[in-house]
Write a protein that binds this DNA or RNA. Structure first.
Lengths: 313, 313
DNA sequence: GCAGCGCCTGCAAACGTTTGCAGGAAGTGT
DNA sequence: ACACTTCCTGCAAACGTTTGCAGGCGCTGC
């Protein structure tokens, strides 16, 4: 609402004097903080690290500060953090799988779970299940174990449902559900026993951490991957490329997940009514832990023929 | 400066009405923000994740908000972030290995490097070198490769010096310096070639990520760990326990590193003159990637006797 | 009864913005 | 020359604290 020439002059003067607006004063009168918060259960986990990275990169570009709270997955702590953050930010992104978000007094975007009255960004669990199981079936596997994630996770619940649907439609193919097991290395490691005794030739883990645990446990048990057991993870962490052999996994679009949640939060701050839900698609990354099952009879050899078309990374 | 009874009454009233002081107003007049910033090059790296976790846990307990900036190790971005954060926080912790901290206008605590006029918390690089190399010598290794970290890192520079000193004092023991190599999985992986051709029976990596790369590269080259090559890492990340075989490493006191830097920053905010420097001690964690070297001659067999006393985790 | 002390109340200034409004100066069209 | 528009200046209120000071009330000790 000023003439262009004046604007230039003002800007030049600002530059010359080195004027920087005082954020506290601005906040006081405007009521906004120009900050957003990110709630995570464990920042040490690269999954959440990637999330924070994407969110803060975008936010800082827009002049938003990013406050972080690592709750250690402790419900009491989460509640406290939620309330504390609510007073310091304009809105927040909750990447915590089981937090009660009702305590928040600012707009919240939930990542990887859908709740009533909340914006959310999730990875398509159906697609994860189909990508992983489809890959295994294509390779010729007919006895597949699936390790379930923690029952309280929205994503685990959805994944289980997707797996069950897939199982119902896959003739001549037996799928055993194992667990639930914690979404950790140890969770995968201890789940190996059940996987082994299930007689499966391939196993789909709930995430990459679990898959790594399964890999290590299989190694310790003397079972070779992928020749004797195929392992497929999910998440697409950098870690997955560092295992031996490197892990076949269904990669979540981590970067996009972060950016989208940041963007949804932005929309929410402008217009609280538009609590959108978006679903992002995962991508199968075939590395070296997946292969056709060991050939035992002529019949199974028949199936192997189908695998020849499968691309290997 | 009020009577105890009055204080109680006031507190009760505060509770009843649900009064919460407005941070913006408080900041405006007090000039403090009750916030600290953490600068990291890559939050996806669990080393920095652990740092952030420890810092923010402590800080939030004291009512301090924690702002985070992930700079992607880009100098321009680091400069920008440093200036932006300076205006929003009372002080910051810089866990970035090569940032120019001069642009900061608030007190800064540097982690893992020492600078003039800056408080710092570092891990004793001398101890890391001695712990790792001493362990290998005790096991009987006489040809040891050490992969150097990036030349611009203070910690790498110190580590190199410590290694050289150790080498000078270790008779009958040859130590080859490899690199510098990036402090990453890929860095370790590509360094393997040089390690192999150096003829060493053991290698000390600059950090756990590098060590993991070495482990994988060795596996791909058909060289068994630890029977044919001993690998020792450094950092003590959770990742180190997830490798196959689990990694012997010199663990940094990550939690303590974070807490101490937080505390030093606190002291600095009270009294800017006391820019303390503290050095923390690492700890050798022996797992399964270290063993006595392969016996080739009677002479080397003689050395093996010394290893029997070495505790294995 | 009075000085002195401990505690409290009440008031006002200051922090650095945003926002809105009143007024004025210059330029445009008739 | 007059009304009108466009752009600008200047002033003042408001945001919710902190900080400091002046004054008052009641109690204690002499």
């Amino acid at each position: 609402m000023v003439a262009a020439a004046t604007r230039e002059a003002v800007l030049a003067a600002v530059e010359e004097v080195g004027f920087v607006p005082n954020r506290a004063a601005r906040r006081l009168v405007s009521g906004r903080s120009d900050a957003i918060g990110v709630l995570v259960p464990d920042i040490t986990n690269p999954y959440f690290g990637a999330m924070v990275q994407a969110i803060q990169g975008d936010a800082r570009r827009d002049g938003l500060a990013v406050l972080i709270a690592d709750t250690g997955a402790d419900p009491a702590e989460e509640r406290r953090a939620l309330q504390a953050l609510s007073r310091q930010v304009d809105g927040l992104v909750a990447v915590t799988p089981i937090t009660d978000l009702a305590a928040a007094t600012v707009p919240v975007v939930a990542v990887n779970r859908q709740l009533r009255n909340h914006a959310s960004v999730v990875v398509d669990q159906d697609a994860i299940a189909h990508l992983a199981l489809g890959h295994l079936v294509d390779l010729g596997h007919r006895r597949i174990a699936v390790v379930r994630g923690p029952a309280a996770y929205w994503s685990a619940m959805r994944r289980d449902r997707a797996v069950e649907r897939f199982a119902a439609g896959a003739e001549g193919c037996r799928i055993d559900l194992i667990g639930p097991a914690p979404a950790t290395f140890e969770g995968g490691r201890t789940a190996y026993g059940a996987v082994d005794s299930s007689g499966a030739s391939a196993v789909v883990a709930f995430n990459d951490l679990q898959a790594t645990g399964l890999l290590v446990a299989a190694g310790e048990a003397g079972r070779e991957v992928p020749s004797s057991l195929t392992v497929v993870g999910s998440d697409g962490l950098g870690l997955a490329a560092m295992t031996a052999p490197p892990l076949t996994t269904v990669a979540a679009p981590l970067e996009e997940l972060g950016r989208t949640s940041r963007q949804l939060l932005g929309e929410l701050l402008q217009d609280a009514s538009g609590a959108r839900r978006v679903t992002l698609s995962p991508r199968l990354v075939v590395r070296r832990t997946s292969a056709a099952p060991v050939v035992i009879t002529r019949k199974t050899r028949h199936h192997r023929g189908r695998t020849h078309h499968v691309p290997r990374s």
